[in-house]
Design a protein around this nucleic acid. Structure first.
Lengths: 137, 137
DNA sequence: TATACAAACGCAACTTTGTTGCAAAAAATA
DNA sequence: TATTTTTTGCAACAAAGTTGCGTTTGTATA
């Protein structure tokens, strides 16, 4: 199973367009998570803002990327390592570096199970750790 | 130590204004977390939007309320139970009900410790659980 | 309690962010 | 290559957030 932009799009039954390829490549060749704004900057004047919104939405729906909530009203997106086409299950911890600002998926750190009070039923758990990343130490 | 709006404002060396009192009372007498939009609705035509923005920012800075990241680009705010005037340390779990939409601080559920990869240093951990709350069961 | 000073508020104008409908352009299919 | 379907870009809009400034309100001092 290859993981070029073309392969991923094909596997998810998406038309292979230059916008999708370029945005997907930003994720494939970049290090961390990207916000809409990041993509707009990195892509330069290349695409319309609307295209970016729609492309990100499509990728989330297909399970190619997942969204990471942040405390500053700027959703970040990152590649799903596993196949999330039948519902997202990215139960790893996300790390936001307060120095470089990068958001990193700690794929190897799984979210620990927690015991909720009576009557609460959990369907998804997000864990976001802030601090200093290994590059900025 | 009292916890009326006036007391809290006084304790934090903030002028006691009617806007601050009303917004603070929404938190004191409400059940869950509130977004900027919630406050705007609940307060009716009472204050200017700008005042709400500035008041929330002041409260966060003073450690009276803390912000809760969400996946839909709408930061929620909730009262800090402890005194967070010297840095926030609200290490409890937040629950977002997918039915009623309420965000609830599970004060009794503490965030379990996690082991980060080498070189990462954690300063704050957020844990957001989505699902169905005890009222909506 | 009246006055002076400082802080907070409200307004207006603006910037940024996100959404929707539709015609043109580009992919997929035959 | 021709036809159909999907995606894109544009325009216009709606919502969210910011900034500067004059006016009002709260606080401190006499």
């Amino acid at each position: 199973m290859q993981n070029t932009a073309d392969d991923i799009l094909k596997r998810n039954q998406l038309s292979i367009t230059s916008s999708r390829k370029k945005i997907l490549n930003l994720f494939l060749h970049g290090t961390g998570a990207l916000s809409h704004g990041d993509i707009e900057k990195k892509a330069g004047e290349k695409f319309d803002r609307v295209t970016i919104y729609r492309t990100l939405q499509t990728f989330v729906d297909k399970g190619i990327i997942h969204s990471i909530p942040t405390a500053d009203n700027s959703i970040h997106y990152a590649l799903c390592k596993d196949d999330c086409s039948s519902g997202h299950h990215d139960n790893h911890v996300h790390f936001i570096c307060s120095n470089c600002g990068n958001t990193i998926c700690l794929e190897d750190v799984t979210v620990p199970p927690i015991k909720l009070p009576k009557g609460f039923i959990s369907s998804q758990v997000e864990m976001i750790v802030s601090g200093v990343c290994s590059h900025c130490m």
